[in-house]
Simulated scan of single mutants.
Amino acid sequence: MLKLDEDIQKRRFHRFNLLYGEETFLSHAYRKGLKNLLATPGDDMNTLVLEGDEISFDEIADFGMLSPFMSERRLLIIMDSGFFSKADNLKSFDPGSDRLIELMGNLPETTYILFEEKNVNPKNGRLHFFEGKEGLRSIPPKPRRSDILVTRFDKKTGKELGEWISGYAAHNGKEISRRAVYMLMERMGNDMYILSMELDKLIGYVGSKKMITEPDIEVITGGVVQTRIYEMVDAVAEGDGTKALSLYRNLVYNKEDTSEIMAGLRRQFDTLYRIKTYEGSGLKNSDIAKKARIPDRISWKINSFMNTAKKFSHDRLRFLVEYSLELDEQVKTMGMNRQVATELFLIQALTKE
C-alpha cells in the first residue's frame, strides 16, 4: 500500500505532497481525490490552482501566507511548474538557500501545497530534499521533512495491472474473468486512460449482467475500428486531411463509438511517440517493438509504425498525446461531447507544426 493511501484512510495528511510518474492516470486521480479531501468543493477563497512553468514565488507567497477564511486550511495546487525538472549538482545543492524550500518553511501550518508534475528529474536537488535523502549541504529546520510526502506512479504491468482492472470492475459492481482481464490487457496495452475507457464501455455493454467475459471483450474491442485508425494516422502523417476525415466520417456513418475512435487514435499516437524515442538508437526493429510495448499480436507492423513515426517530430507526438488526454479530461469533467472532442483532436493533428 502506498503511504499516500494510508494518509487517505487515516485522514492524516502531509502538508506538502508531490505527485509524479509515468502513470499520469493515477497521478491525476490522486490529485483530484486529495483536493476533495483537503478543500471544500467550490471554496475558491481557500483554494488556488497554479499551472505552468511561469509560476512565481510571489504568487505562492501571496496566497500561502494568508490565514484560511472560515476553514481549517488553505490549499494550493501547483501543476507542471518545472520546479523539479532541473538536474542539479547534488553535492553543492543547498536546501537552506533554495527559494522554494525557504518559502515553504515560512508558510503557516494551515497552508498545504499539492504539487503534480509531469517532468521530474531524478537528479533534482529539491526532489532529493523532499525524499529525505542524505548528502545535501544543509537541512533547514523548516519545512520539516516529515511534513513532505513524495509519491511516484509507475506504469503497472502483469499481475499488478490485472488486479487494478479487476478492482475497477468491482468498484462499478461488476466482476471480470481472469481470461477476460488478460485479453483486455493484450488488446489495449497498459495505458490506464485507455483501459478505463474500455472498461466503462464494457460495464455499460453488459448491463445488468454481473460478469464481464471474453466474448464481451471481443465485441467491444473488435479490430475493424483499429484498422481504420491505423489508416487515419497514416493519412495524418502524409498530410492528407481529405483521406483522414473521410475515414473518420465513414466510421461515424457506420455508428462506431466515437469514444473507441478517440481511444484508438490516442493509443496509436502514443505508440508512435514511444517508437520515436528509440529512433536512431541502433536497436533492431523487433527490440524497438518490445521497448515500445507493442503487443505481440501486432508486432509485425513495427516497420509500418516506424515509417509513420519518422514523419512526426518527437515534440509533436508528445503534444498530440497530451492534447488527447486534455480532451478526454474535458469530456469526463466538463461534459464536452465525445464526437466534438474527437473531431477537435483530428483537426489539431492535421494542423501543421
Rank of each mutant, 00 (worst) to 15 (best):
F130T: 09
P143L: 01
E116T: 11
E116M: 09
G135K: 01
P140Y: 06
I139W: 00
G125V: 03
R126C: 14
F130S: 09
E117F: 12
G132T: 02
H128D: 09
V120T: 03
E131W: 01
S138Y: 01
K133V: 12
F115E: 01
R126G: 15
S138H: 00
E131A: 13
F115V: 07
K123Y: 13
F129D: 12
I139Q: 07
L127M: 09
R126T: 00
R144V: 07
S138T: 12
E131R: 14
G135W: 06
N121T: 01
N119S: 15
H128G: 11
E131T: 08
I139N: 05
N124P: 10
P141H: 01
V120Y: 11
E116H: 06
K123M: 14
V120H: 14
K133W: 08
G125M: 06
G135Y: 06
G125H: 07
L127Y: 05
K123T: 10
P141Y: 02
F115G: 05
F130C: 14
K142I: 02
H128T: 14
K123D: 15
F129N: 10
E131H: 05
E131M: 10
N121W: 09
G132S: 08
V120C: 13
K133S: 10
R144W: 03
L136M: 04
N124C: 14
P143M: 06
V120D: 15
E117K: 04
P141T: 06
K142R: 13
F130A: 14
N124I: 02
F129K: 08
K123L: 14
R144I: 00
E116D: 10
L136V: 08
R144G: 10
P122D: 06
F115I: 01
L136W: 00
G135R: 08
E134I: 05
K118G: 05
R126I: 15
E117D: 00
L127R: 13
N119A: 12
G132Y: 03
E117G: 03
K133I: 11
F130V: 13
G132D: 07
P143I: 09
E134N: 12
L136T: 04
E131Q: 13
P122S: 03
F130R: 05
N119E: 15
I139F: 00
G125K: 11
K133L: 11
E116F: 00
P122H: 07
G135C: 07
F130L: 14
N119Q: 15
H128A: 15
E131N: 12
G135M: 07
E117Q: 02
L127K: 12
F129C: 14
G125I: 03
H128E: 12
G132P: 08
P122W: 06
E117H: 06
F115P: 00
E134W: 11
G125L: 07
P122V: 04
F130Q: 10
P122M: 00
E134K: 15
